[in-house]
Simulated scan of single mutants.
Amino acid sequence: MSTTTRVGRIMTFTAKPGRGDELATIMMQVAEGLRGSWGCELYLVSRDAESSDTVRVIEAWTDYASADAALATTVATHADIDLNDVLGILAEPPEQVDLDALGGVGL
């Protein structure tokens, strides 16, 4: 077992009814913007199997500073990603759960 604590994060985004496709598209753009970002070990965008308007993102980072910096930089430097557009699509505020990622397959 590693003594380094990785950051795990589960984000849940719920779009207004019928806008799940738009939300998923934007979250995939965010994922593309994070490719090669230092500290990003996993950024998996998935749609909830029972609700097409719910998108979940599972993340693994080397540390909190990397996670916060990379996400802020990606949104700030990609003109096709507008935080206000994301907020306008959402039916409710996103839910964020932070975890101490201990390891497993792929980490």
Rank of each mutant, 00 (worst) to 15 (best):
I58S: 12
Y64W: 07
V45K: 01
G18A: 05
Q29R: 15
G106D: 13
L102Q: 08
Y43C: 00
R6I: 07
T12R: 15
S51Q: 13
I10T: 12
G39E: 06
S2C: 02
A91H: 02
Q96F: 12
A72F: 01
I26N: 01
P94L: 04
G18I: 07
S66Q: 13
T77K: 11
S37V: 08
L83A: 10
E95C: 07
L71K: 02
G8A: 09
D82I: 09
E95L: 09
T73Y: 09
D100G: 04
E59Y: 05
E92D: 12
L71I: 11
R47L: 04
D21Q: 09
S46R: 14
A91F: 05
L42T: 10
A79P: 09
A31R: 15
A70Y: 04
V45P: 03
S46Y: 03
I26D: 12
V55Q: 03
I26V: 07
T4F: 04
R56A: 07
C40N: 15
A70E: 06
T12Y: 01
E22N: 07
T73H: 13
L99W: 13
L23E: 02
I81D: 09
I26S: 06
L107F: 13
D82C: 14
L34A: 06
V57L: 03
V7K: 12
E95R: 15
